[in-house]
């Protein structure tokens, strides 16, 4: 019974309180691996934080630069693949028209093929070089 509860307490209040407290004593709860489970989670957090902190500022900068370089390299390769694909398609279209392989009006067809091929190539470059 706490002091601020005492003034309005009656004997039946006290009996009820005693009964409620004795019904579920906290001390009777066996640990049963609970602490171990909590500490496993806490230790995992501690290790993750240490791993982050162990990365020196210089390493972090190098890591960021490397990531930026990789991203820039991938973008450049993608652009090159698109340009080469379009040029190849246009060249094949023009050569075919010159040789009379297909009507001049349909020369855009190989160009479209080249564009699609370059798009596929660009997609592969972007996906494979992760």
């Amino acid at each position: 019974m706490t002091p601020d509860q005492a003034p309005d307490s009656t004997p039946s209040d006290a009996a009820l309180a005693a009964r409620l407290r004795s019904a579920w004593p906290a001390q009777a709860l066996a640990d049963g691996g609970f602490t171990q489970a909590v500490m496993a989670r806490v230790n995992a957090q501690v290790q993750a934080r240490r791993a982050r902190e162990q990365l020196s500022p210089q390493q972090a900068r190098l890591w960021a630069q490397r990531s930026q370089t990789q991203a820039g390299h991938r973008a450049r390769q993608t652009r090159q693949a698109l340009v080469w694909g379009c040029m190849l398609g246009a060249a094949v279209g023009a050569a075919g028209s010159a040789l009379g392989a297909w009507p001049v009006g349909a020369a855009w067809l190989p160009g479209l093929g080249g564009l699609i091929a370059s798009a596929v190539l660009a997609w592969s470059v972007g996906n494979l070089e992760v």
């Binding site: 706490t2 601020d4 509860q5």
Partner: peptide, 9 residues
């Protein structure tokens, strides 16, 4: 207040 025996405050 009763099971955990905390004061009202």
């Amino acid at each position: 207040c009763e099971v955990l025996a905390l004061s009202h405050d």
